[in-house]
Amino acid sequence: MIVQETRLDTARIRAARQVIDPIFLDTPLYRCEALEPVLGCAVSVKLETANPIRSFKARGTEVVASGLAANGSRAVVCASAGNLGQALAWSGRGRGLEVTVVASRHATVAKLERIRALGAELELVDGDHELARERAAAIARDQGIRLVEDSLDLETCEGAATIGLELVDALPSFDAVLIALGGGAMATGVGHVVKSHASDVEVICVQPAGAPAMTRSWREHRVVSTDSADTIADGVAGRHPIPEVLDDLLLVADDAVLVQEASIVTGMRMLLDHAGLIVEPSAALGIAAILEDRERFADRHVLTIICGSNVDMDAYHRWIGPAPQ
């Protein structure tokens, strides 16, 4: 596979900042020294949970909803594991859009409840996220409304890429940026901006070993789908990579690694114990990658994006164990 150019455009990414509600911009970025003795490297975190949606997804949905409202659209639909749905509900509510979200009945309960609370119509399917995508596409066709497809739609990638603009202000102090990899919006968007400004900074994508489709696709330079996805990191549990997104990823990722569930759980516990952060599993992927390859990151300055904190607390306590008395 030979890729000539990316779909992403730096000028559009800069313009995206002008339509995104400032409440989602300029999220905290700081060095977390308490993590460093146990990880063996300097660690900085970009806290994309410090907003009303508690994830980075609203950066993209703000761009989507702004464009729809400007064109006089009144309705929109998406499939979501939970975070995109919340973000689209938020962005649509503020612009008078009727939002429908299709999700798996097995999605995180807290995420589903928040989607409803934000005023979206929620339809549940008896299957995984891929089935939800099929149902959302059918609704869009039947009703003649916009289907928002995370990572395929450039607005979601270029909205997420605004994180990269905020990171490059702090470059070149980082040696590597660790990015959770699911559909690829954040990885391609942030990777594009980082590589455009500091090509020597290593862009490393991290995915659970139980949901490896995009990582396998990156390694083989072709789309590789999987029959199933088995991971607690529901936000990155896709099975069918999008060809256009893979093309973009091949241009910016220096590496894509797979991590074990035990490392994800340990990463979540470390973020709680040493940084005071309650995060969902996807947000701990970067820490998990360091844990599994300490020698690679030893004495380097690594940045990881804490991408979401919408977690079912009962499940969270089962994973990390009871709180200390």
Rank of each mutant, 00 (worst) to 15 (best):
H106T: 13
T215N: 03
A275I: 12
A107Q: 03
Q207G: 01
I320M: 10
E113R: 15
A87I: 07
G308K: 04
A283R: 04
I2K: 15
T226N: 05
R296Q: 12
T188P: 02
S282E: 05
H240N: 13
I278W: 01
Q325S: 15
D234P: 00
S104Y: 04
L84S: 08
L272W: 15
A176D: 08
R216N: 11
C307S: 15
L178M: 09
I287Q: 08
V265A: 06
D142Q: 15
H106C: 09
L25I: 06
M1S: 14
R135I: 10
I139G: 02
T188D: 01
V38H: 15
R222Q: 12
N83P: 05
E261G: 06
D21N: 13
Q325M: 13
M214Q: 01
S55Y: 05
A34N: 15
A180F: 02
S55E: 02
A161P: 01
D153N: 15
A137V: 08
I290R: 09
G267P: 08
A42C: 14
G286I: 07
R31D: 13
L167V: 12
V38G: 09
H221Y: 08
R14F: 00
A75H: 07
M186W: 07
P322W: 10
G94C: 02
Q4M: 14
L291E: 11
L249C: 12
L118W: 06
V102Q: 06
D169R: 15
I204N: 05
E244R: 13
M186F: 08
